[in-house]
Design a protein around this nucleic acid. Sequence first.
DNA 1: TCGATTTGTTTATCGGTTGAATTATTTGGC
DNA 2: GCCAAATAATTCAACCGATAAACAAATCGA
Lengths: 409, 409
Amino acid sequence: MAQPAAMPVGAAGVAVRQASLREHNLALVLRHIATAAAPPSRADLAGITGLTRATVSALVDDLITGRLLGEVVRTPRSGAGRPALGLTLAGHGPAGLGLEINVDYLAAVLVDLAGVVRHRAVRRIDLRPVPPAEALALVAELITEAGAEADRQDLVLAGTALAVPGLVSATGVVRLAPNLGWRDVDVPALLGGHPALRGRGLSVDNEANLAALGELHAAPPGPANFIYISGEVGIGAGIVLHGTLFRGARGWSGELGHVPVHPEGRPCRCGGLGCLEQYAGQEAMLAGAGLTDEPTPLAGLIEAAGRGEPAARRALVEAATALGVAIAGVINLLDVDTVVLGGVYAPLAGWLAPPVEAEIRRRVLTAAWSPVTVRPALLGGDAAAVGAAGSVVRTVLEQPAQWLARPVH
Amino acid sequence: MAQPAAMPVGAAGVAVRQASLREHNLALVLRHIATAAAPPSRADLAGITGLTRATVSALVDDLITGRLLGEVVRTPRSGAGRPALGLTLAGHGPAGLGLEINVDYLAAVLVDLAGVVRHRAVRRIDLRPVPPAEALALVAELITEAGAEADRQDLVLAGTALAVPGLVSATGVVRLAPNLGWRDVDVPALLGGHPALRGRGLSVDNEANLAALGELHAAPPGPANFIYISGEVGIGAGIVLHGTLFRGARGWSGELGHVPVHPEGRPCRCGGLGCLEQYAGQEAMLAGAGLTDEPTPLAGLIEAAGRGEPAARRALVEAATALGVAIAGVINLLDVDTVVLGGVYAPLAGWLAPPVEAEIRRRVLTAAWSPVTVRPALLGGDAAAVGAAGSVVRTVLEQPAQWLARPVH
DNA sequence: TCGATTTGTTTATCGGTTGAATTATTTGGC
DNA sequence: GCCAAATAATTCAACCGATAAACAAATCGA
């Protein structure tokens, strides 16, 4: 279940018939409406896509009757002629439910087709001592609540995705979530039968991957190429290449935390030596700043850095330098043009970004003529939940024909 | 020109009309014939693709009249019924010309649709003291020769690709080829007008990228995910994900040689510190083994390692360990399942692979349940030239409609 | 109020695929 | 040696989606 929305319509290996043609063009029209700055008219779409106005009309009619689109009057009219009706994504149609389980909180968000967050719930709770089944029972409560909220707002639940800080197999089994203490937890089996899910299944994915998707949603449309770095207790990375999430050959990509930065350096929990996590992980930063005993150590670190505390500043530079070394390796290999600092790195980006950029300049061969941007994440703490919900919405937008033809319950 | 054959037919963003439908299905049928173990019949193809026999027949007819396919009788017949005619890629149709400029040789190969090398030429020459224009004049001779050979064998030149050990821009300009001493050489401008190219243009690409494509061709068909490591004077990498070459956001991917392995280690020509190239590059290996003064140092290294010379063995283990550290980082990030040792690493793979594998086992989180294979390259010295020719052939196979509709000279 | 203009729909046509019927070519049984 | 069964490939009417051009609808400006 960790592979939603990968193949475009008409992808290699599949025979194409007239029906596929329709599917593709439905998706094409819908995508243009979704990414347009202002609600386009049928005529606009015909101009942009190269399809005839007649064809666009037919496609739009299907999408309107399927409750994916709505019509609006465009108030400031320009020039003569019959006024155009603007087309927008329906605010009362399908919505995606995004869930997140993390070390110290649970989150649920409902996102509609337009990407608007229609419902948001967060439970702060330390989940480390909680066994998986109990944690999932708490998630089930969030699902029930979100399902009721969807009904109240006239939204139809199109699907659900769950973000977990760990390695997730293609079938949704959490193979390993070290910081939660989970191992081989079959989440879809335990939670997929929840009545509020309407039998639409539950996809489970890595937290960094889904946060990267959230970032992709939040960023202006275009062929994005970036690496989203999720600094939590561990360090994960979501890699977006050519506007799509890259999951690796077998779904295990993005383990940035265990990229070696000092091959003979500090031993890591994973059995390796000198993994990035040991130098730039949350614990390493706090230890370096001498803040391990604080009640809210992260807030303490931000405050200390703001005060100019030398130990804090030094710890951040050290962490950022290690991060920069690893990222330089990534860029030499993948040539992404943007590095997004997420998770705990986001509020620290002001101090982390300069040393990271310095390492990139030093170590990336092509940096001289292909600049790399380092910036904090656009979304906040529940980025992964928003990204999870967005991933559901994205499948609807990318495969509208499937949604229109869905079995109605 | 460094981006051939990226978009599948019906890719996102393009309106689809009936003609695109045909294009897609032509490619679909052709691909199945190309990857089949034995020549399939029209009926076989109908069964595999899901298209009707009528449709397949129509498509095949187009491909046969366009000289892309041929019919053969399948000798061992099974059971009753009208015997099926096998379909194979034409051996007299389009062919790709692959060229390679490297530090100490030039190479040219002609590859037909079936992937058979129909012509091969190599000139051993030290190109370091030769200015770019003269080197390209030598290449022009190879092109003339190959063009004549194509005519003699009733092959139609479909296109030409050139492999260069350096960074190539999207327009084919060699931005930097340190070991050749080239900088900003506009190869298509200097060579693209050659009459034997038949006005079909010349694409230029990095040597490691094209060698990886060659490896992809040589390997059994399937969704390949590997990193091809090209150890020459520098260290390049061609990354194949889901069966397609990944070139990075802007075409500068694969600079494995400058991934940091010892952040505060030896200074590198690139200005960085502790780049892989300084530990696992050809020069580092030879220096470590004390063989820099030999006339044929590489052969000397292989021989010394075979003899069990301690210095040579030690140098290889050191190089392989550094390589393994960098590769472990790559796998943690990209989760490729195979590492192909190419270039000078290929003949040394017997000694290099075990330490590389050891580092992977130590440092890759998922290695325990997702094994990684390390193996020598299947192709020999002219892998990049074969891959270059193959990349041309691949564009024809992936976009047969374009080939059929080509302007005939 | 009327012409100009632009939007959106209608209608005949075209192109490509489908499915059933037809033709073609072999094997195997009698 | 002939005929039925079996399998391959082609033919042809029908269908479906896109197209192009004509047409209807709605507004602006003179």
